[in-house]
């Protein structure tokens, strides 16, 4: 939970420009069909990843949820569908969509997930919240407490940064002590878990005044101090994405664009 950003050119890029580029890259796969386009796109994405210096471990950990929620049910479904079709020969069980179309859909979803991971792991949370504060202005017009909401998120992240490692160590110690190792029965394990949770909650509520002061402090100071900047790295990033779009366009149109 303790998110630290690598210092790369990518990290220091303007948050808004980076957001625009991330959205552009995330939607590009919806407009390409040619195999060469896919190769160009993947090469660009690889360079994008290398420049961001994001660790493989982070990507794999974040990817686990995509794998668990999307891929496992899908692969299981395909397998079961195949088995049922072979057993019954029921035409209703034939896949409504070809496999190729489905793989492309999976690929597009994967890219949206991947680009969002790259964006959020290379952008300071303050910048993200600051941008959200501006982008969610229609909700403010509806008198929704957007700023309060974002400040709460900021406070939670601050709290997590301060407590996650301590808490993990304490959880480990407590679980060894309270749950009595592998030999303990399931019931005593669950009693142990509930005791850990209760003690964690009770301890947290002892700090209620402290957290309240943090909220008060946070509500007084201007939390969202994002300023738009357009320097050399930003121009380079925009230019590289423009080049990518141009090359994909050329490939998709079969060179017709230049002639």
């Amino acid at each position: 939970m303790n998110r630290t950003l690598n210092h790369s050119t990518f990290t220091s890029l303007d948050g808004f420009i980076k957001l625009l580029l991330a959205v552009t890259i995330a939607i590009l796969p919806f407009y390409i069909e040619n195999k060469v386009s896919y190769i160009i796109f993947l090469v660009y994405l690889m360079l994008f990843t290398l420049t961001s210096r994001i660790s493989c471990r982070t990507l794999l950990l974040s990817g686990a949820s995509y794998f668990i929620i999307v891929l496992i049910p899908y692969l299981f479904g395909i397998l079961l569908n195949g088995v049922l079709y072979n057993l019954t020969r029921n035409e209703a069980l034939i896949m409504q969509q070809g496999y190729a179309a489905l793989y492309i859909r999976l690929f597009r979803l994967f890219i949206i997930w991947y680009v969002s991971i790259l964006y959020f792991h290379t952008t300071h949370l303050e910048t993200v919240l600051s941008l959200l504060d501006r982008l969610l202005f229609p909700l403010k017009l509806l008198k929704l407490p957007v700023q309060d909401f974002l400040k709460i998120i900021m406070c939670i992240v601050t709290q997590l940064k301060g407590t996650s490692e301590d808490m993990k160590t304490r959880f480990l110690e407590d679980s060894r002590y309270v749950m009595g190792g592998n030999a303990a029965s399931l019931k005593s394990k669950f009693n142990g878990i509930s005791r850990i949770i209760v003690s964690s909650l009770v301890n947290s509520f002892h700090k209620l005044d402290e957290v309240e002061s943090m909220v008060e402090e946070m509500s007084l100071k201007p939390l969202f101090k994002y300023r738009f900047k357009m320097g050399k790295p930003e121009w380079l990033a925009v230019l590289s994405t423009a080049l990518l779009i141009l090359s994909l366009y050329i490939v998709e149109k079969g060179n017709g664009f230049l002639l």
Binding site: L160, S164, S175, I193, E216
Partner: peptide, 29 residues
């Protein structure tokens, strides 16, 4: 209850919810 007090309670509960999910990775169930 004051607004900040209410937010503090929400912060504590959300922080705990996230930390409690850590338990799942620690405790083999």
């Amino acid at each position: 209850m004051s607004k900040n007090r209410r937010y503090a309670i929400i912060i504590i509960l959300v922080t705990n919810a996230i930390l409690i999910s850590l338990l799942e990775s620690i405790i083999p169930v």
